[in-house]
Design a protein around this nucleic acid. Sequence first.
RNA 1: GGCGGCGUAGCCAAGUGGCUAAGGCGGAGGUCUGCAAAACCUCUAUUCAUCGGUUCGAUUCCGAUCGCCGCCUCCA
Length: 479
Amino acid sequence: MAIKIYNTYSRQKEEYTPLHPDVTGFYTCGPTVYDYFHIGNARAFIVFDMIRRYFIYRGYRVRYVMNLTDIDDKIIKRANEQGVDSAEIAEKYAAAFFEDIQKLGIRPADVYPRATDHIEEIQALIAKLIEKGVAYESGGDVFYDVAKFPAYASLSGKNLDQLQSGARIAVDERKHNPLDFVLWKAAKPGEPKWPSPWGEGRPGWHIECSAMSMRYLGETFDIHAGGQDLIFPHHENEIAQSSAATGKEFARYWLHNGFLDIRGEKMSKSLGNFITVRELTKQYSAAVVRLFFMQKHYRSPVDFTEEGLQAARASSRRLTEAWRKITAAAGDALPLASADEAGAAKAFVETVFRLQRDIQTAMDDDFNTPAAVGKLFDLVREANRFIDSGVSSEEERRAVATVLAHMEGYDSFLGVIDHSAGDVDSERVGKVLDTILHLRSQLRQEKNFALADRIRDELAASGVIIEDSPEGPKWRWKN
RNA sequence: GGCGGCGUAGCCAAGUGGCUAAGGCGGAGGUCUGCAAAACCUCUAUUCAUCGGUUCGAUUCCGAUCGCCGCCUCCA
């Protein structure tokens, strides 16, 4: 069974087949690094991270490319406000981006190309478009001539006449057509600039994605992803630029994630409901945030609420607790390859494998994570029940180990289990020990030295040394 | 105006032309427990916005109506 993907271009689900059998080329529009990114961006990054990782789970090799837009009007504006160089702004927020995606459990891309590192490729592409007669230069700017590309707007299903009649675009009389978009922008005084055949300037926004995706994935590649708002005009323009330049199909499958509202309202700075991932991850772990999104289909709109996050936190705790319990019960037993080897635990292991098929079926159907997560909860209930009824034989332990192996597999793309909850060496331990020491102090005040000493001895056996100092009790690890 | 999507229990959310309409959160009761927590069990939608149509049969297909949302401008 193949993975089926909803392709925005055809508006239907299609069976996925890679262009080259050995590798899937996957490009996602990344951030413009002018500010900390917000939870709307986070959804896109998380969802495409999941899709990429599901491909890997299913045995595909994936080359995953995400661009960083590090030169653009918003960056220049921010730099001017702060009186610093635009490169400094870009560098700062690029660093913040990497920190934040790490906190969301997002696996790094294979390549993070930046626009300013690819000026040469961008200029070569623009030159090619001029040469082919689909772009024109005017006063230091270069525009794409939309009328020269008959398939324009086929991704978004719009038609040119309607677009023009409804256009709210400020008229620039240098354009042949109001929909023409800029490929190269002449520098105004004080703006960052690069030399070019058309004068000093900088690339337009859309061209970088064409140039860099072709550079790292080839002229035609498999998957191109981004938010629904990018369908028009950004992806439309990418297609126009790339196909016109190469005469080939650009991306084969177009994936777009649904938008996110906050308490039923669009997120915006003026409404004061702008939530950055920086703030969010102070309160919620990657597992919680990811589970929140995984319980919704990636193409559906999502309403982001505190209550929803609380519910996700409770659900995540259930998964994580089960994972710990299963890990403990499995011990070092090896997972089973089929239910036939399960002996007395056969019925249980059959259920485990049935759920595995169910989860794969759900995921293969355009990444139906809500259905898959539902089955994961079924698995957890079955496993809890099995373990509660007593696990003693090797067969039983291997059955549990099978559940564990499956769960780890699902989590390799979902990322909804908090594995750090199993870490011994964390600040949680400190808090726990503080509580113990506090209670032990009370016992000592009550002259219950027998019990107090026993606590000290038993902790010592666990590798924790207690010392009663004049400043109060202290603890340290043995060695 | 054009294009696209949505309306399933208190909340979130899958789903299928016909077997009991997943799962999670929340809530109620129970088992276990010194207490608590966790876990497990039972219950929490005679019904899938409304009205028509197709069909032996529709929540699922078609049409209409109402309501909500996104894109058409930088935006994940």
